[in-house]
């Protein structure tokens, strides 16, 4: 009888030992897990990324220099606000001058502008007006549209919205435009309406 009770005791002791070992592994395991999570940026979750603007500038002019140290284009405006979320800038009442030498100067204004992707894209939004004075070999150019995307590095401007345009004395209307100031080509892609006035030399 005593043999069997000894056996039972041993079995009990073995089961108890197993249980203790299991719980110790569990406790150590969870400590290890927390440590891993903490190291892998667990702290980031605790501190929310900043979405509100982090700085603004008033009455500014930003001049982008060409390699030849002359100004390529400049952007001025009443207020420039920086957004850290996507490193973009919003400008109220922007005025953009295209200054590339050898090409007709162009002035662009609108209600506001969004400058993103380190100044390679400028979205002009609301009452966009583009003006280029006539010169020896270019006609007067005046254009209005509700929206215009500028790609200053490529000297291209484009919109998918309606545009109203004056080219010399010709009035042109269309929807969707791509204008390349470098190659001096302009395309209207939908519903074009052009009016060429009768010659004044009658």
């Amino acid at each position: 009888m005593s043999n069997s009770s000894n056996g039972a005791k041993a079995a009990n002791r073995f089961r108890l030992g197993l249980l203790i070992a299991l719980s110790v592994t569990l406790v150590l395991g969870s400590f290890w897990l927390i440590e891993v999570l903490r190291k892998s940026g667990l702290a980031g979750i605790t501190e929310p990324a900043r979405t509100a603007p982090d700085y603004y500038v008033t009455h500014f002019t930003f001049v982008k220099m060409a390699k030849s140290q002359t100004g390529r284009y400049n952007i001025s405006g009443d207020r420039l606000t920086h957004s850290p979320v996507d490193d973009s800038h919003e400008i109220t009442r922007p005025v953009i001058h295209n200054l590339t030498t050898g090409r007709p100067p162009m002035v662009m204004t609108s209600d506001r502008a969004l400058v993103s992707k380190d100044n390679t894209e400028v979205q002009m939004i609301g009452n966009v007006v583009v003006d280029r004075p006539p010169s020896r070999d270019t006609q007067l150019f005046h254009m209005t549209s509700p929206y215009l995307l500028l790609l200053p590095e490529d000297d291209v401007m484009k919109t998918d919205k309606p545009v109203d345009m004056t080219l010399g004395k010709t009035q042109l209307r269309g929807t969707g435009m791509v204008a390349n100031n470098a190659t001096r080509q302009l395309d209207l892609s939908h519903r074009v309406h052009g009016v060429f006035p009768p010659s004044a030399a009658r």
């Binding site: 269309g174 302009l186 009768p198």
Partner: peptide
């Protein structure tokens, strides 16, 4: 007709600012 403007309607237009040519 001589004193009237010339009006052009089209789907697309390409303007060559160097040669000052409109292609509708």
């Amino acid at each position: 007709d001589s004193g009237k403007p010339t009006v052009v309607d089209a789907d697309q237009m390409a303007y060559d600012d160097v040669k000052q040519i409109n292609t509708f």
